[in-house]
Amino acid sequence: MRRARLGFWLFLAPVLAWLVLLIVLPHLDLLVMSLRSGSGSRASWTLQNYANFFGEPIYWLTFVRTAMYSVITTAITFLLAMPVAFYIAKVARVRLQGFLLTLLLLPFWVSELVRIYGWMILLRESGVVNFALLKLGLADAPVEMLYNDATMIMGLVYTSMLFMVVPLVSAVESLDDSLIEAAHDLGAGRAAIWWRIILPHCKPGITSGAIVVFMLCLGNYLTPNLMGGKNSLWFTEQIYNQFIASFNWNQGAAFGFLLLALSSAIIWIGLKITGQKLGEVAS
């Protein structure tokens, strides 16, 4: 009994150490920093850093914009990933399945930076697409395709696909084919089968995929910056600016904390609306 206890603590110790050292301590430090102003001996406790966020429209509007676009990206990713996942899990033959999943994984072999530069090479004014358009006579002058919101969202969707497809594939795979046939036999058409059988069955997979994609988008820095350009106005840029450009670590820490709190709140509301619990989704 005692030895079992000892073993339990021995295994738990590294996990606890990791949690405390890399997650809890830095966040505590951030929290303390966000609640202070100035530095050194002139430092004092204050809520001013948080008040700045709500008082200055550019800050909270940037956050709202970031959250909205993250939700839109999540929705688009889901709409694209669901048929792909269904095809991989139910329609494709076993050998093709592995090949398709590898194909999805392949872009992640290279770093995000290289992936985005790949897009930029394709889309910039002197890029491949424009070259083709001009050669084919479809455009008279090069078209600027980078640095707008649509391109930015496309880049985010591209980066997020895998994280949506993988949980969806395993969700669809666990669906018994005979349930689909039974629904068909009982008079259900295509729409009713999707709506009443496939989607309810995949709900936990959809939710976990959506949470991951949403959080990745919200916290993404490279894609909005490089593909959205100067006017991408992503919230992570505000945090970066405070830390690096303005050297205002207290303000940056407050923004970091607000990002954590507000995104958690959005996910909590999402789970409430769809009537789910985080534990069920994770299992």
Partner: peptide, 16 residues
């Protein structure tokens, strides 16, 4: 199948 006046009880039932 959804337009036939027959219904099938599946080997493993396939309840939803």
């Amino acid at each position: 199948p959804n337009r036939r006046p027959v219904n099938l009880v599946f080997q493993h039932l396939a309840l939803f």
